[in-house]
Simulated scan of single mutants.
Amino acid sequence: MTNQTIANAERELYLTLFDLAQTQPKAHEWLAQLPKWLNDIKDKSRYAHAPAYQAAVGHLPVLTVDNVDLNSPAITIEAQLNDSERKQITALLKQLMPWRKGPFQIGAQIESQIGDEQSAIKIDTEWRSDWKWERVAPHLSPLRNRRVLDVGGGSGYHGWRMAGAGADTVIIVDPSCLFYHQFMAIRHFVGAADNYNTHYIPVPLEALPEHSQLFDTVFSMGVLYHRQSPFEHLQQLKGQLVKGGELVLETLVIEGDANTVLVPHNRYAQMNNVYFLPSVDALVSWLKKVGFSEVRCVDVDVTTTDEQRKTEWMTYQSLADFLNPDDNSQTIEGYPAPKRATIIAKK
Rank of each mutant, 00 (worst) to 15 (best):
V57P: 08
P175R: 02
L241H: 12
K347F: 11
N39F: 11
S212V: 10
S285T: 14
S129T: 15
T304A: 05
E85Q: 15
V274C: 07
N259S: 10
L237F: 13
A207E: 06
P202M: 02
I77N: 10
G166W: 05
A21D: 10
I106W: 02
V300R: 12
T5I: 10
S176K: 01
K289W: 09
F104D: 02
T5H: 12
T342M: 08
I171Y: 07
Q228K: 13
L262G: 02
S141M: 06
D116H: 15
L262E: 02
S329C: 05
D150V: 10
S329L: 03
I201S: 14
G256N: 06
G115F: 13
S45K: 14
P336H: 08
E294W: 10
P278S: 00
G166R: 00
D66V: 00
P138R: 10
Q236G: 13
G115R: 09
G245C: 09
Y225G: 03
P103Q: 14
D124V: 14
S176H: 05
R187V: 09
E29Q: 05
L96I: 04
K347S: 15
H211F: 10
L247C: 14
P230H: 00
A79G: 08
F292T: 01
Y14M: 11
N328F: 14
A32S: 09
D40L: 11
K346D: 04
L283C: 13
P325Y: 03
L70V: 00
T331I: 03
W30R: 09
P35I: 12
T169S: 07
W127S: 07
E111I: 09
D83S: 08
L252T: 03
I6Y: 05
V62F: 11
N3W: 00
V136N: 04
A9W: 02
V148T: 05
L252V: 04
I344F: 05
L208G: 00
G256I: 07
R340E: 00
D150F: 05
H265V: 15
Q80D: 10
